[in-house]
Design a protein around this nucleic acid. Structure first.
Length: 437
RNA sequence: GUGACCGUAGCUCAAUUGGUUAGAGCACCGGACUGUGGCUCCGGGGGUUGUGGGUUCAAUUCCCAUCGGUCACCCCA
């Protein structure tokens, strides 16, 4: 296996690429329905585009090197810095809000695990230049509609939504000391992945009192009614009203059934400034399918333009695992349209002429490249998934006639070849359900 | 980067717990059923048992290293 792909990198065989193409096509279709337009940037960027935002420690997770011109460069680990640069360069010329999406291949030097490779494709969908919560709702509704487009419903996928400011206010109201907040965020971020006793000990060590500690530990199961009551009582009626407008907007956009308020969603620690969300499979078996939120200060710190922004990333790896586990494998190839076979009196050049004319009309056509007897040709036609075979030079056929055989039920029809080719039209769709044998 | 477990054909798995030439199903290729596919039957290709050492008369089996995979940390853009 010395010739295999590098660890964490994938070979895409035709069946694998069919899945990838299906995912991309679905992403593009929903993005288009929401008015987003596609962009792209270079896969290789200056190293400091990433260190400027995240510090030098991120270098350990980058594919970086010095190029032949002495420049420190890195394969892109994320799209946001590139987006920020591109938007900043033409910020004044863009109609606001900007709705852009991209499907970059991203790279990170990390030890791979299931659902996490060293390379993946990630849909990035961002809205720039709108600070109201309707934009937040629009963004999540798009993510939810992507799930729907793949055939996933509320029983399959849950959107957990939170807000950095709500969480902070809620913790303060519960009695968490102000200086301990960042460290408490870190504990909450891990609350599902470590025993409650460990989380409790960490909170104790941070000087969080017993009452506040219990509130933190139960934060994932706190209902919006309970949370909003606490916040309203603590003088945060404005925050509560804003978030409720967000939830109502999600309902209006048809995404409400997927949404669950869960303040324990922290989304890392870095640059999110407002509403954040994650999409999970409802069974909780896989990693997050999608994550995103509002990052109003990031563009200014990266690219110099001060515009509010929000976006999400959705990778192809976990999504593909989820679709396969749910049996939603509609990308399987449906095979070719026509196989041109030649009988006794036929000649391979006749098959070529017929194939050429059918192909010119958009049909997918194969014929036997090596000389084979008819039984063999039909066997090959069947293996190729052809829907019908046209047999030239069948015994007793008049000049200009051919036999068209349907391969699903074996029925045959004698046709005038010219008329039959003339009737050929492109197939309605290349995404038929898989042909079961 | 740290730790645990696992590596046999393209895929899923065998090989009487150290024993002779490593097998089967599926897939692939071909033949027969005397020139119209799927079924059936027959045959074929394909493995340095991940790799390299070690122990032994003998290693797929035991030991070490290395590479790869899985999982948990780390990290999550």
């Amino acid at each position: 296996m010395s010739l295999g792909a590098l660890p964490g990198f994938r070979d895409f065989y035709p069946a694998d690429l069919a899945e990838r193409a299906h995912i991309f096509a679905t992403w593009r279709d929903v993005a288009r329905r929401y008015g987003f337009v596609e962009y792209d940037g270079p896969p290789l960027e200056p190293l400091d585009l990433y260190t400027r935002k995240s510090g030098d420690e991120i270098v350990g997770q980058l594919y970086n090197f010095t190029d032949k011109g002495g420049r420190d460069v890195a394969l892109r680990p994320e799209m946001t810095p590139t987006l920020a640069r591109m938007v900043a360069a033409r910020a004044n010329a863009q109609r606001k809000p900007v709705r852009w999406f991209s499907i970059p291949q991203l790279f990170r030097y990390e030890r791979q695990q299931r659902g996490r490779l060293r390379e993946h494709f990630q849909l990035n969908l961002d809205i720039i230049g709108e600070s109201g919560v309707t934009a937040d709702a629009e963004l999540l509704a798009a993510a939810v509609d992507i799930m729907r487009a793949f055939g996933l419903g509320p029983a399959d996928v849950v959107a957990r939504v939170s807000d950095r400011r709500l969480l902070q206010a809620y913790l303060a109201a519960a009695g968490v000391p102000e200086p301990a907040l960042p460290a408490v965020f870190a504990v909450i971020d891990k609350i599902d992945r470590q025993p409650a006793t460990v989380s409790a000990e960490k909170l104790d060590a941070l000087g969080v009192g017993p009452g506040a500690r219990d509130a933190v530990l139960a934060i994932g199961s706190a209902t919006w009614a309970a949370i909003s009551a606490v916040l309203a009582g603590a003088g945060h009626a404005g925050l509560v009203a804003d978030f409720e407008r967000y939830l109502r907007a999600l309902d209006a956009l048809g995404a409400g059934a997927f949404v669950r308020v869960d303040l324990s969603v922290v989304r890392g620690l870095a640059y999110y400034t407002g509403i954040v969300f994650e999409l999970f499979d409802a069974k909780g078996e896989l990693r997050a399918i999608c994550g995103g939120g509002r990052y109003d200060t990031l563009l200014k710190s990266l690219g110099g333009v001060d515009l509010p922004a929000l976006g999400f990333g959705m990778g192809d790896v976990v999504l593909g695992e989820l679709l396969r586990s749910r049996g939603l494998t509609t990308w399987q190839s449906s095979g070719i349209d026509v196989w041109v076979a030649i009988g006794d009196a036929g000649d391979v050049t006749d098959a070529m002429r017929v194939a050429a004319r059918l192909r010119a009309r958009g049909r997918s056509v194969e014929y036997s490249l090596g000389g084979q007897k008819l039984a063999r040709q039909l066997k090959a036609a069947n293996a190729a998934g052809a829907r019908e075979a046209v047999i030239l030079g069948a015994p007793g056929a008049a000049s200009g006639e051919a036999v068209v055989r349907r391969l699903d039920d074996g029925t045959e029809q004698r046709v005038r070849l010219d008329a039959w080719i003339g009737d050929a039209t492109p197939p309605a769709s290349n995404h038929q359900p898989p042909a079961t044998t």
